[in-house]
Amino acid sequence: MHLPPLTFVTGKGGTGKSIITAALALNAARSGQRTLVCELDDHPTMTRLFGLPDDLGVEPTATRDGVHVANFRGMPVMQAFLRTFVPSRRVTDLLLRNRVATTFFESAPGVMDAVALDRVADILSDGRWDRVFVDLPATGHALTLLRLPASMAEMIGVGDLAARVRRLADIMADPARAALVVVTLPEEMPVTETLEFCSTIRREVDIRLGAVVVNALRRLPLDADERSRIDRIARATEEAQPQASARIRLALRLGNFWHDEDQRGLIRLEEELPSTDRITVPFVYHKESERDLVEQIAASLRQREPEGGAA
């Protein structure tokens, strides 16, 4: 998968977008790229995946894998942002110690999002990083965030902030500099939502759709003949082994259902997003830890060439 310097990753809740982000970053770092993952979440997950303490700051922190991680949420990011407009540290400190002011920043919708995105643009321009991955929130909130530069540009026509917002909108619109990766499961509902999300993005946000990662693909390719043979064998032991027999038949139904549903999902993605790379990641049946899951997925992402679509 060819990714530009700035990659936004999102996906419906429960599709494994943070794990995929971590695996992509791990592969980038291991191929020698200076790699940073930015989280925009009050409840960080990268810290857990990379074994760092939870109270990660605005400044990128090195992990033992070479990936750097930073969290662009909360008042420290606001502090850094305010400092670009108000040189006096005393004034910004006073402001951030004021309960009414922090209440306003935290509760006025979009304020913290805008500040976090502004920080991403800063990070990108400082030349320290070859690859920056932004672990966006789940699709609903991510859409809000990705639209923000354009909506703010519309709302704020002039001034320094307008220039800063436009700077990010320009980066996002440049296919050589930024792309969006959408993580989905091959199941019916996530695929439907992913297709809706992608079409909204195409309509409303000026950013290249880099790839759709189809996570946790379950494959059990049995033909009709094999399916009925398994059923026959299980039924033959219905009396001697009633419970095992019932479980084998349940497993057969599950396996067939999963396989067929996932294949249907892949076909829908292929038909409706013909020019977007699809990268499939097999379902992981056994993991020692979350960290082990990242390793397994990183390994399958390394092996896998995009299935169809334009490179």
């Binding site: 049995l222 094999e226 043979r229 299980a234 033959a236």
Partner: peptide, 12 residues
Amino acid sequence: DSGTTEPMPGAF
């Protein structure tokens, strides 16, 4: 216990 000589498909 199935008593059949049919082998279980390998994929399964």
